[in-house]
């Protein structure tokens, strides 16, 4: 376990720039795919974009919410930006769908990117990793990715965003209502699997880590 942590540390420090690039690319791909899936699902390109004063709004929340627990719960849902499709066939326009960016969720997506980036680099510099590790990371990333979906439409009168997102992509009402209360658990299990994926040692028969050779290998790139 300690060896594995040491390995992660070495790889992370030696590849900081690549890792950051990977995380940024992952965030872009995640939201890009989300946007494309909405465009395909609803058959309409986005026609509006809104920006929100996240800092100002957060300041208001901090000033007006006595309980720190409530404060954090509200801040984590604060929007930074929204892009969507406004349908002008009804009234003065009604938002048919939107993809929004919440800093808390963006950080979550960045964390998925970080773990996946570390996996990628550990594979690259440290031979093949265990299939169990890959499976853990894959499933973990999918679960966290699922609960980080930030879609909205007019029907979300009382449903948390991630379930709304799944419903928008076609998930049945019964399933989405069943999933609703277990969102935090799904996310927690996802993060656990992601962490496990990193900590599971490489395949048997190659258990002796040689950090010196690894350093050289990285420097040689």
């Amino acid at each position: 376990m300690l060896d594995q942590l040491q390995l992660i540390k070495v790889i992370a420090f030696k590849n900081t720039r690549s890792l950051l690039l990977f995380i940024c690319a992952f965030i872009c791909v995640y939201y890009g795919v989300s946007l494309v899936s909405l465009v395909v699902r609803f058959g309409a390109f986005p026609n509006y974009i809104n920006f929100y004063d996240w800092l100002g709004n957060t300041k208001v929340i901090v000033q007006s919410t006595p309980s720190i627990q409530d404060m954090l719960m509200i801040i984590k849902d604060e929007w930074l930006m929204e892009v969507g499709y406004m349908n002008y066939d009804f009234g003065h326009g009604i938002s048919e769908w939107s993809l929004f960016f919440v800093p808390f969720k963006v950080i979550t997506v960045a964390l998925i990117g970080l773990v996946l980036g570390l996996h990628f680099m550990m594979n690259r510099y440290h031979q093949m990793r265990s299939k169990k590790a890959a499976a853990c990371s894959g499933i973990g990333a999918s679960l966290v990715g699922l609960t980080s979906i930030t879609f909205s439409w007019v029907v979300c009168c009382s449903t948390p965003t991630w379930v709304v997102g799944l419903a928008m992509l076609g998930l049945g009402v019964t399933t989405s209502l069943w999933l609703e209360p277990i969102g935090a658990w799904v996310s927690g299990v996802g993060f656990l699997l992601l962490t496990l994926g990193l900590l599971i040692p490489k395949q048997r028969g190659d258990t002796n880590l040689n950090f010196h050779s690894l350093d050289k290998k990285i420097e040689g790139q």
Partner: peptide, 17 residues
């Protein structure tokens, strides 16, 4: 019963369309 019909989640604008 809930199994005797298909329930879909749909926004008003999409439902109307």
């Amino acid at each position: 019963g809930s199994k005797q019909y298909g329930l879909k989640n749909q926004s008003p604008a999409v439902g109307a369309a």
